[in-house]
């Protein structure tokens, strides 16, 4: 399976360490496919560095390799946060190439290729999880929040005492129900945003500085 079969877990960690050095908080943008992770990453970069992270699409599994930018500084009044930001492929428990054909009109070959790359992307996201210092977990507030992917990501972070910030995205959509999201995971801060319009992203930045800026003793493993 791609590059992964060649590296044991420990080696993968070491490679990531090499890329980043050890200086800043490494913040991962995580979540199921199509919730708006890359849209959010692009907005954060555009606002604070003028850069761009990656391509966005209404077809799930658009991001199939993790992408990152280092040394991003977010200012919030008196305090600030310097972080390395990772945009991860959407995590799923199933990937059906027929969905790309039937729902999104891709041809068979494109669909099979996208599905294959998507499975590798999920594995890459999971591997990155071990090297991350905090997560912005993006959820689609028009959807049921209690998906296995959300539960699994939260469980992994909680087991290591790492901070999670839930971005309840797509708040601009008519069917959005941020209250459902808030009651689903009461133990973590939930910030309703629209990555598309920029609505309430100030609030997200304030929370990022607050939650990811603290010094923490990391539990590894």
């Amino acid at each position: 399976m791609g590059i992964f079969s060649r590296f044991k877990r420990g080696n993968f960690s070491r490679i990531i360490q090499k890329i980043f050095g050890k200086k800043h908080a490494k913040i991962g943008i995580y979540g199921p496919p199509n919730v708006g992770k890359t849209t959010l990453a692009n907005r954060i970069l555009r606002e604070w560095t003028g850069d761009i992270m990656g391509s966005v699409s209404d077809i799930p599994h658009e991001t199939r390799r993790a992408k990152w930018k280092t040394n991003i500084k977010i200012d919030n009044g008196g305090s600030s946060l310097v972080m390395d930001l990772v945009d991860t492929p959407g995590i799923a428990t199933k990937i059906d190439f027929k969905e790309f054909m039937n729902t999104y009109g891709l041809n068979k070959e494109e669909s099979r290729m996208r599905a294959k790359e998507a499975t590798e992307g999920v594995i890459e996201s999971i591997r990155w999880l071990e090297d991350i210092d905090g997560v912005v977990l993006v959820m689609d507030s028009t959807k049921d929040p209690f998906t296995q992917v959300n539960v699994t990501i939260i469980g992994n972070l909680e087991a290591r005492d790492l901070p999670i910030l839930i971005a309840a995205n797509k708040i601009d959509a008519d069917e959005a129900s941020p209250a459902t999201l808030k009651s689903a995971f009461p133990q973590h801060p939930v910030v309703p945003i629209s990555a598309l319009t920029g609505y309430n992203t100030e609030d997200l930045y304030t929370n990022m500085v607050k939650h990811f800026g603290k010094k923490r003793n990391k539990k590894r493993g």
Binding site: K94, T119, I123, V151
Partner: peptide
């Protein structure tokens, strides 16, 4: 759970197994 998802991704083949 993450290990199971990872194993699932490795097992997916388009025609007989689309995941869990």
């Amino acid at each position: 759970q993450t290990a199971l998802i990872e194993n699932t991704m490795k097992e997916i083949d388009h025609d007989t197994f689309i995941g869990i």
